[in-house]
Design a binder for these strands. Structure first.
Lengths: 184, 184
DNA sequence: AAAAGTATTAAATAAATATTTAACAAACTT
DNA sequence: AAGTTTGTTAAATATTTATTTAATACTTTT
């Protein structure tokens, strides 16, 4: 890999590719498709891109770019920009990871909290009905009570998760955990 | 669905199933297979289970239970227990969601930080070499500087994420965001 | 309003992942 | 130590998910 004959241009690209690879690899743990992960990582080094530039750069189909870019918009990692004079849509990558973090996790956690708390409320009602039901044996009642309490306990977690979301959304968390911490 | 003819026993199960469904559905957003998600949610209402009980309960193959339970152990959502007198291995679900949260996200975020910081360090070195290279044109140098700075900026985020992990691991975060918050 | 360019949706294909069946290995019992 | 039970690994199958090709709808320009 004789370094000396390599052009500055290609060294630049090589350096970018290292980061692109790392970002893409960690991103598909975030539930996005490989295409979307690659796309975001690629856009991370571009000012803005059109769908056609994307498909050329990644050598993939346009619909694939279209759906990927939409998915990335959903999790606020890509934004549409308005470029005068061009009919093509242009998109930019969110380069502030704090914002991506916020958008992604808050959305995910809110969904989780809502879905589980809803189910818990319903189930707790059911358990109460079982407890009150004269047809219930002692064993059944005891079980129902146990589960009711277990769910009650778990609500603490979901409330906490909601608080976490809230403190991220409001930025209050950065009072506790500052962003730069003297930049190490 | 005439409620009155339903036995307390089946009402109990129905209530559990509501919660099982919700947990399982949110869990496969956490990168576990449907089998593992269902398994965890089922175990959430059991004291302990053997592999054979799991396969009976979920009506799936034993190897599927074996791999699922291992995956769940990896993310610390299930623990092995030692039951005297039984040759079968027994497992219990971690019912404290705070612990699961900690284990899952800390592991995930540490991986992300390490992988990306490593790539960034390498890339930044490369960019410096391009900047120092006499063959580099002005444009190339400017680009290299731009990317170097962009990566430098992004490190702030990864350091912050590391701090977050640290404060979760140590429990310090609960000083800032208390667990029970008067239980609403 | 027509035509050209662009983006999106739908159906078909390709690729990846989860699950199962079958074979193997390990641990316990007698 | 041989046989039986339990758990794991490997190969094959099934299922799901991602991607592409082809068709459609929307925008903008003339």
């Amino acid at each position: 890999m004789s370094e000396s004959i390599e052009s500055p241009k290609s060294k630049l690209e090589e350096a970018q590719n290292k980061v692109i690879g790392a970002i893409a690899e960690t991103m598909d743990l975030y539930g996005v498709t490989p295409a979307a992960a690659n796309l975001y990582a690629t856009m991370y080094f571009k000012d803005q891109m059109t769908l056609d530039e994307m498909r050329t750069e990644l050598d993939m189909s346009k619909p694939s770019m279209s759906t990927s870019v939409r998915k990335l918009q959903d999790i606020a990692m890509v934004k549409k920009t308005f470029t005068r004079g061009s009919r093509k849509h242009t998109y930019v990558a969110e380069k502030d990871f704090f914002r991506s973090f916020m958008a992604f996790y808050c959305q995910m956690w809110e969904r989780e909290v809502k879905m589980n708390l809803d189910a818990i409320e319903e189930a707790q009602e059911d358990f109460i009905n079982v407890i009150k039901d004269p047809n219930s044996t002692q064993d059944i009642v005891a079980e129902a009570k146990k589960y009711y309490d277990q769910l009650q306990e778990s609500k603490t977690y979901y409330y906490w998760l909601n608080d976490l979301v809230e403190s991220i959304r409001s930025g209050k968390i950065f009072e506790f955990l500052p962003k730069d911490e003297a930049n190490k």
